[in-house]
Design a protein around this nucleic acid. Structure first.
Length: 605
RNA sequence: GCCCUGAUAGUGUAGCGGCCUAUCAUGAAGCCCUGUCGAGGCUUCGACCCGGAUUCGAAUUCCGGUCAGGGCGCCA
């Protein structure tokens, strides 16, 4: 390797050294004589200088000049030179290498670049190209500091995690990518088998069954930086293929798993930020989260809880409330206290803003929203006349109302009210700026149910997944499950659980989820059998890596922390996948496409 | 499958039915310039997503489509 230094390295101490620098031409400034080049690589930018009136002995002025002519933007180049101090007053304080520059003694183009389709420099008031362009030319996009930072941060995060897990006896095991398609859960990506025509593998949605079988195989502590695949529609935080930090432990209970994760996160924090993160994390029950914050992943950096006031106002002759109550609905209130709203002596939620909030609430399905202001004379609103002084005073007490507070009241079907209240709380927090983006608050969502019932079909689904150990008898109405979610600033990072290790319990859960004996046998027979050979009590967790990284880096989408992501429609704009394959390949697999474009109408007729 | 938003030179944008032979910036090409750092100056090049409708006249209005992003559904 000829390169002696990278572009982020040179300092005053290097002055006088003969160096060879290689990198990309980011900017060049030709002053008609003296010429500057910003040479960039993944480590930084170093200024190169060519000065025809300042040529070191042995250097060939004409040949350098000739080479520099072909130094187009983003060309890969190699330059020999001498590190020298910049002229007094021309140092660049923004650049770590800004006190020195390299006087070119030899210049050579390694590979010339065509004019790049967009600007790669770190724009101050950056005008990034549309994402489509960035993904199409991802290799150029990756040269941008932001992307370099994202991938390096991601690496450091994973590397710190590995370090901790290794120290704690975890073994990294690679589970298969070609696996079996199972009925529940997300849609599978399937892969045809050539040897067994007409049969298919599925890419794993998660290594769930395999990691459990590793426990049965005495592996004791397993982890994997596991790629997972789900053929469902994308979102800003969902990609068809994504990465989880997947773990499993034997002879443990829920608390052991949570403590291990807390230790892991604390370690990562120390490594990355050199800060001590507070552990254990706060725990909040599923019920409390839903009732107070209307979300199973509430942002706990701010308060603004929903207060249930159904019982207080149930006798008030206010028609809207009575209507709702007669249908078994609920009424909740949010107290937007004056200290949250007042900005520079001005109320940030005036009449117009309230109208906007009402509109917001209506969009999510409620009929509207009533509101009251707390003045020094008591609660004031166009509906206070419907409430007796006793009711009003109890309302004030329950919602902890002080003068200047604003109460927002939502009424409707319970589920809808909680959900909307949660969204409203989130919106208020955004509008009022209640969150510090650099404040990272982890919490555990605990005491989760085992099942959830689809309100439309009445069908029972696993709340988490069917391998969660139930915590209550199975014949009661609200069966509990030993599962828990790790949440961070309003996002779910992952869920873990104590698993079922008794085959009979496992079989029963499958049945409760509506699987027939035959389906259980064909899909999970092997797994039930495995549980029957002394499966140890075990449990584990999987953390969505892309999601954590994007949150920690304040990126809007996980695509910004994945080197080569798919677009919203699951396509890779870089290589053009997915694509049709040659007919011969399909024939070999004995596959016939019936996609509209592939059907020859004449064949059918 | 549905809802919302958007689409103008390579890139990012402005654009009131006629002032559009379409703005500005950046870029590219060429020239000038010896201390810049997203250098600067001058010249040139380069665009209204597609189809239909309304209209004397459409980048602009309407309808349909395509593409992109956000969301709902979906994601045990």
């Amino acid at each position: 390797m000829r390169r002696t230094h990278n572009c982020g390295e040179l300092r005053q101490a290097d002055i006088g050294k003969k160096v060879c620098m290689q990198g990309w031409v980011r900017f060049s400034r030709d002053h008609g004589g003296v010429e500057f080049i910003d040479l960039a690589d993944a480590y930084g930018i170093t200024q190169l200088v060519f000065d025809p009136e300042d040529i070191t002995s042995g250097a060939d002025k004409n040949s350098i000049s000739e080479s520099l002519r072909s130094f187009t933007r983003e060309s890969a180049v190699s330059v020999d030179g001498i590190v020298r101090k910049r002229i007094e007053g021309t140092e660049d304080p923004k650049n770590r290498t800004g006190e020195v520059e390299v006087l070119i003694t030899k210049a050579e183009v390694l590979n010339r670049s065509k004019a790049p389709p967009f600007e790669l420099g770190d724009q101050k008031e950056g005008v990034l190209p549309g994402e489509e362009i960035r993904l199409r030319y991802r290799y150029l996009d990756l040269r941008r500091t932001e992307m370099i930072e994202a991938l390096r941060f991601r690496h450091r995060f994973i590397s710190a995690a590995r370090e901790y897990l290794d120290k704690n006896g975890f073994v990294e095991v690679e589970t298969p990518m070609l696996t079996k398609s199972t009925p529940e859960g997300a849609r599978d990506f399937i892969v045809p088998s050539r040897v067994h025509p007409g049969t298919f593998y599925a890419l794993p949605q998660s290594p769930q069954l395999f990691k459990q079988m590793l426990m049965m195989g005495s592996m004791d502590r397993y982890y994997q930086v596991a790629r997972c695949f789900r053929d469902e529609d994308s979102r800003a935080d969902r990609q068809p293929e994504f990465t989880q930090l997947d773990m499993e432990m034997s002879f443990v209970d829920m608390k052991d798993i949570q403590e291990m994760i807390e230790g892991l996160v604390v370690h990562i924090w120390k490594k990355i930020y050199n800060k001590k993160l507070k552990a254990p994390f706060r725990r909040i029950s599923f019920d409390e989260a839903m009732n107070k914050y209307g979300s199973d992943k509430p942002d706990l950096r701010y308060g603004l809880p929903m207060v249930h006031i159904t019982d207080i106002v149930k006798n008030a002759p206010y028609e809207i409330f009575q209507n709702v109550l007669s249908k078994g609905g609920a009424i909740v209130g949010l107290n937007v206290t004056s200290d949250l709203r007042m900005k520079d002596g001005e109320d940030s939620i005036g009449r117009n803003e309230i109208d906007r909030l009402i509109h917001f609430v209506k969009k999510s399905g409620l009929g509207g929203m009533t509101w009251m202001r707390a003045t020094k004379d008591g609660l004031d609103s166009n509906i206070v006349k419907y409430f007796t002084p006793d009711v009003l005073s109890e309302l004030k007490k329950e919602m902890d109302v002080k003068e200047g507070d604003l109460l927002l009241l939502l009424a409707g079907p319970k589920r809808n009210v909680l959900e909307t209240g949660g969204l409203l709380r989130k919106k208020l927090a955004e509008d009022l700026g209640l969150t510090d983006p650099d404040d990272f608050l982890f919490a555990w969502l605990v005491d989760c149910p085992m099942f959830e019932t689809d309100p439309a079909s009445g069908k029972k689904d696993a709340f988490h997944h069917p391998f969660v150990m139930p915590t209550t008898p199975l014949d009661i109405e609200n069966v509990g499950g030993a599962s828990f979610d790790l949440i961070l600033n309003g996002s779910e990072l992952g869920s873990g659980s104590q698993r079922i290790h008794d085959p009979e319990v496992q079989r029963k859960i499958f049945k409760m989820l509506g699987l027939s004996d035959q389906k259980i046998e064909t899909d999970f027979g092997f797994f039930l059998e495995a549980l029957g050979y002394g499966a140890p009590p075990h449990g584990g967790i999987a953390l969505g890596l892309d999601r954590v990284i994007s949150i920690l880096l304040h990126r809007e989408t996980i695509r910004d922390v994945i080197a080569f992501p798919k677009n919203k429609k699951g396509q890779s704009l870089l290589d053009g996948s997915p694509q049709k394959v040659d007919d011969e390949k399909l024939e070999e697999l004995q596959i016939l496409s019936i996609a509209i474009d592939d059907i020859n109408i004449e064949d059918i007729e």
